[in-house]
Write a protein that binds this DNA or RNA. Structure first.
Lengths: 334, 334
DNA sequence: AGAACCCAATAAAGCGTTTTAGTGAAAGGG
DNA sequence: CCCTTTCACTAAAACGCTTTATTGGGTTCT
């Protein structure tokens, strides 16, 4: 691989001149510019970005830390992040934590070693305070979807309580009084907020809460599957189920299919998070939709404001509103 | 951020000693080791990986270049790649090309600037020969799923022709003679091989091919949707459809739902690529399954063989066999 | 004509590591 | 007792760039 030195020799100019010309098309005399350009082309020279990063103190790379890219919520977010990163000529490193605080720590450590200019994170657990190690001034980061309450940073979140409230209120309006909840991880704010929305929807219409109807599915497919089986096995099973994320919805649907419970005739179902197939599933699934791609782009934009230093001093928290998409998986109880 | 210099001063040793101790726990005297370790902890020192990369000539980063992470096939592959990268203490940069050769070129250019130690690529189009620019010796890469025939490198592929053959043969055995094909991009080997499998299955039982039944869906959701609508609008519509990838399957299913065509009673459907929801879709979808996650891990392992120099001289091509998963979306024609 | 500028071009410093070559002291060998 | 090894440790070079300070020649101004 040719270096800038080789180009300088070939063009018979100094190293400094090559650098200047390459970074500023208007630098120097016409002859020198053309000599440098010709040499660059001839040698197929490509500047070494590592060397450049070292002197500039920027790598033009950011990281995205999420539980699992296979969760469609996060793949959509990731795509949004990558798109704005591309716009700024940045690349993005993908980090799957599998909800594991240890893996998350490892990733954070590598970031502290100057490998990225900033990162976007959906925390595995808000009980882990390791994030405090990164000084937000030096290495900016922004929360997406889930955050650590003690550690301040910009955040893009969804009003989870509102989303859950909308879903459960809808079910209550349809006359359901035994509504199962396949809940999310209780060590995430997201999980707790959706639980809170479920409870508060009941309270606001004076409906009773049954603790046996609320089961933690841990935000995973398997968890959703097991929780649904448990719900179905109850002596008095629910007439409707609200599932707190899309991974668990898949598990839930699988359990319902296995048990041959018909939707919506025998049970009504609402999932949190839309997906491409929900629309033409039979029956089409009623869901709470989050603006996933937009969350990714917004998080990206804010992060770049921080990186480029154009962000205001105080941290911003953007709260997006989820939307209830009514399709055909719920029926009124007569 | 403290540098190695600060640690050296704090520990009252030389810079070189700090470096040695940090990279070799057995170096030097016990006193010096403990002095260095204490200073490191006290200052919260984290080595600067950029500086290290510069001298070592390795960044410990690889890239994954794919059309779109939102395609479940690629999200599963990506997860496999990330998992083996983690094992080797590498990070992975995610690059979406949107099937766009220009975007792909931009990514390749940034790789040539030493930012990654190697990459895994599913080419956007095999008509683009830009890949030839990266000298496989200097910057190793491995193909996944799709490759450029002119440019040699390790490859992990699926026997696409065989997969398509299995699906279409099954349909033919069930008595179908008008089988629609929602085909993939003709400028990818993958797309052409699946088409070839479709044709060859017909030929092997002496069935006629109807050119009006083969429509290019470009591997996208919209393409699949449009192709299916076109198929349905034929004066003599097909009794079965074989769809050459999962994105197009979603579009196809959407078109069928809109047209209220019942599966499998009015039309039989087989998709290429399994997905989490296919199993409990109603009806459960018969599909050709590819070992996506495994493809990712294999590609990763081979790439690391190259990076670490443990790979054999000659390029390896691993061909995996897809599998027909029969569920309930096809019926026999009486 | 001399002072004051401006512009092209460059030498050299610096970014934070690893590594090579080397120093000095202690240990081992004849 | 001198010569050779071994060991702990270090100074300095190198990695490939960007940038700062500087030189030297040509203009412009007074």
């Amino acid at each position: 691989m040719p270096t800038i030195k080789d180009v300088a020799r070939e063009a018979e100019v100094s190293i400094a001149s090559v650098s200047k010309v390459l970074n500023d098309p208007n630098y120097g005399s016409v002859q020198m510019r053309s000599r440098v350009m010709r040499a660059t082309r001839k040698l197929g020279y490509q500047p070494n970005n590592i060397a450049r990063s070292m002197v500039m103190g920027k790598t033009k790379i950011i990281a995205l830390v999420i539980p699992d890219i296979r969760n469609q919520f996060f793949t959509s977010v990731a795509r949004g992040v990558e798109d704005v990163a591309s716009k700024y000529e940045y690349r993005v490193i993908l980090c799957n934590t599998d909800e594991d605080a240890t893996k998350q720590r490892e990733y954070i450590d590598t970031f502290r070693s100057k490998i990225v200019d900033g990162f976007i994170i959906s925390v595995a657990s808000d009980r882990d305070q390791y994030l405090a190690k990164v000084d937000g001034q030096t290495l900016p980061f922004v929360y997406i979807d889930r955050l650590c309450e003690g550690i301040s940073a910009d955040a893009i979140v969804v009003d989870n309580q509102d989303g859950a409230h909308k879903a459960v209120s809808y079910l209550l309006e349809l006359g359901h009084r035994r509504i199962g909840l396949v809940a999310g991880k209780s060590d995430t704010l997201t999980g707790r907020e959706r639980l809170r929305g479920y409870q508060e929807a009941h309270e606001s219409v004076g409906a009773n809460l049954h603790s046996d109807l609320m089961i933690d599915g841990g935000f995973t497919i398997e968890g959703g599957y097991e929780a649904t089986k448990a719900l179905l096995g109850l002596s008095q099973p629910p007439t409707a189920i609200f599932i707190a994320n899309n991974a668990m919805t898949i598990g839930c649907l699988k359990a319902l299919a296995e048990a041959k419970v018909k939707i919506p005739d025998e049970i009504s179902v609402i999932g949190f998070d839309d997906s491409e197939w929900a629309e033409f599933f039979s029956p089409p699934l009623t869901v709470v939709r989050q603006p996933t791609y937009t969350m990714g782009t917004l998080a990206g934009e804010i992060l770049f404001q921080r990186i480029l230093g154009t962000a205001p001093q105080e941290k911003q928290e953007i709260v997006l509103r989820p939307e209830l998409v009514v399709r055909e998986s719920c029926r009124a109880l007569s």
